[in-house]
């Protein structure tokens, strides 16, 4: 039973590490964008072509980035992580 507790703890700690890293990545990406808006308006105003400024591109990329992170996490947690938890509860029974 003690072994079981420890493994549960390890699996859970692993998930939290991944969750924190992903949160930090999201935070950096979003704050990178906001700080550019606040401090370097000229850079964001620079034009990639006639209709597209760097600001619009980066803003849209922050949204796409949020999609990518949530999809990666959901796939991982619902696949790998849940299977480990299932195995563990199965063993305990």
């Amino acid at each position: 039973m003690h072994d079981h507790e420890q493994r549960l703890h390890a699996i859970s700690a692993h998930r939290w590490r991944i969750a924190f890293v992903l949160s930090a990545i999201m935070l950096v990406a979003y704050y990178g964008f906001i700080l550019l808006v606040a401090f370097d308006k000229a850079l964001l105003a620079s034009r990639l072509n006639e209709g597209l400024s760097l600001g619009i591109l980066l803003g849209a990329l922050v949204i796409v980035f949020a999609w990518v992170l949530t999809i990666i996490y959901t796939k991982w947690a619902n696949g790998v992580y849940d299977r480990e938890i299932e195995e563990l509860t199965h063993l305990a029974r």
Partner: peptide, 11 residues
């Protein structure tokens, strides 16, 4: 800003 809260909720 209104979108990036959602990944945080998930994680």
């Amino acid at each position: 800003g209104w979108l990036v809260g959602w990944p945080i909720i998930l994680f």
